[in-house]
Design a protein around this nucleic acid. Structure first.
Lengths: 128, 128
DNA sequence: TGATTACTTGCGAATCATTTGCAAAAATAC
DNA sequence: GTATTTTTGCAAATGATTCGCAAGTAATCA
């Protein structure tokens, strides 16, 4: 584990929300180059030390978000107003995924699920 | 509904798999420009005539895929070997999404779910 | 029907996230 | 500690997607 990779991993594990590559790069600025951050993120994901998903948001477009794997696999809600993520807790669709594997003879190596909309605060702000 | 938009919508509704913007552009080549295709896809999605999701695939990177809304909302499996999509049928996680809305006070406007791995054929080919 | 106004399209250039080539630097092997 | 492998920084390249703007098409109104 090199210094750059350790810095990136520490950043991910220290965050309670998924981070974009740009966010990680900003967090470790001065320590490592953005290309290094991208490479470190790929490395960590290959090693099972991080997970990622791509999210599309109307305002901010498409970005890939990373989460450290120090907590169990989970899913997220993304608020399209304040752009924060809300933790939906440990994955609850493992059973459904297994059903699909059986029913259709698939070998599922990963699944992506996330919700988008307005968080409680932003919803309250919009329609009081 | 202009000619370009109709062509794009017809292409989407005629496909039994999600299509990338590039795929749609190729399908309607000669009829409309790629910028027009992108604009038409956005228009159709805004009008509720199409849905999209962004998928990340190791080999092909990140792409946004579109599906015509002539069939009910559904989810997909993506084979990382042959890059085909397999229809998982009508959405089965509506209840789970509602639970999250209630539990966390969220207002969910959309959800994304897809599986990745190897389809039956590609899995058989790899480990006989 | 002709003219006025509004929306769409094409084309090319721009943008943004992400990746790559390559030489220098760090880590590991011997 | 020297040789070998892997990683990093920097700058330029890539690929999907978006934008500006002038021309084209559609819709509105007199």
């Amino acid at each position: 584990m090199t210094r750059a990779r350790a810095a990136v991993l520490e950043t991910l594990n220290g965050s309670r929300e998924p981070m974009s590559a740009g966010g990680v790069a900003a967090a470790v600025a001065g320590c490592c180059d953005q290309a290094t951050v991208y490479r470190a993120l790929h490395y960590l994901e290959d090693e099972g030390l991080a997970e990622s998903f791509v999210l599309h948001c109307a305002e901010r477009g498409v970005e890939r978000f990373y989460v450290g794997a120090n907590a169990p696999h989970r899913h997220w809600f993304h608020c399209e107003s304040c752009h924060r993520f809300i933790d939906l807790g440990a994955c609850r669709i493992g059973g459904l995924v297994s059903e699909f594997e059986r029913e259709l003879g698939l070998r599922v190596s990963r699944h992506t699920m996330y919700l988008s909309g307005k968080c409680r605060d932003c919803a309250a702000r919009t329609v009081p």
